[in-house]
Simulated scan of single mutants.
Amino acid sequence: MNTISVPRGKLLNTFRKMSMAVNKDLESGGRRSTSSGTRFQVIDKHSISEPDQKIIMQQMFRFRKRIHHGRIDVFWLREAGGLTMLVPYLLTHAGSFLEGAHIRVFTKTDGKDNKKINEEQKSMAAILRKFHIDSSDLHILPEFAKPPCKKTYDDFREKIEPYRAETNAKEKIEGTFDNDQLFNLREKTRSFLRASELIREHSSDADLIICTLPSARADIPPPIYMGWIDMLSKQVPPTCLVRGNQVSMSALNLKFP
């Protein structure tokens, strides 16, 4: 996850200028003919000129412009409710910046034989049918079982290392972790790091990535959890991490028009 550190005064000043630009555009008729085809012409290089203001503006309005022939890649890491599939379904409808986008779905498999993989493919295809999503671009990835590469592990360790505490420390500082906690969460860490590799491998050219949000629990130290989040969302395309209400999809009676 990339964060932007901007002074509060500059942030408020940027919002104020953007709001004035939008209101002025609306008063002039709401639609202006521009070469890019955007609905509102809010970019004013004279009123918004500082580098940090331009960064904020780009982040705020990146989803305003319609993307034609877009693609949404969904990484279904586990069944955590239907929101992970509902969000891309809604984004393909009229009014969205990804209206009419093509949806690809990737999920992992625990089976090694073709019979098990076929069963999981049928189960996932049934979920997609509930959302009227074409299952022809469903990908079951057995590569999830492979361990992440050393560089991925090194990147993760570099992010969390400042928050590591001594295992036998008398007083543990809040917001830190020790080697025992990291060891106990090694399988989850391996899974999420491998998922981040596959997302980069398969979806570096997607217009939006939607991925299952890891479950947050009291026994997971914040630095490790945020390290997982950072690794999953560090892709070049915008990445949306979503988690539902844990209700099984088989228990839902969905009806869409």
Rank of each mutant, 00 (worst) to 15 (best):
L98V: 01
L185I: 10
G111P: 00
F106S: 02
F256D: 01
R164E: 12
A145S: 14
P147H: 10
K24S: 13
L198F: 12
R190Y: 03
C211F: 01
R217G: 02
D154S: 15
A165C: 08
M20H: 07
S191W: 09
E187V: 10
H202K: 15
M60I: 14
A80L: 03
S47Y: 02
T84F: 04
G227T: 08
M249A: 08
R8S: 06
P214K: 09
T189H: 05
L198R: 13
L12G: 00
R157D: 14
S49D: 10
N168S: 14
S136A: 13
T239Q: 05
P147F: 06
R39L: 13
V74H: 02
V105L: 14
P214W: 11
S215G: 07
F131G: 02
M124N: 10
P223W: 08
T3E: 10
P148V: 03
T239H: 05
A251G: 05
F192I: 15
Y153W: 15
T3A: 11
I220R: 05
A126Y: 07
P148N: 10
R78I: 04
R217Y: 08
T167P: 00
K146Q: 12
F144T: 04
K24A: 11
E158D: 14
T109W: 08
R190E: 09
G100Q: 01
D178H: 10
R78V: 09
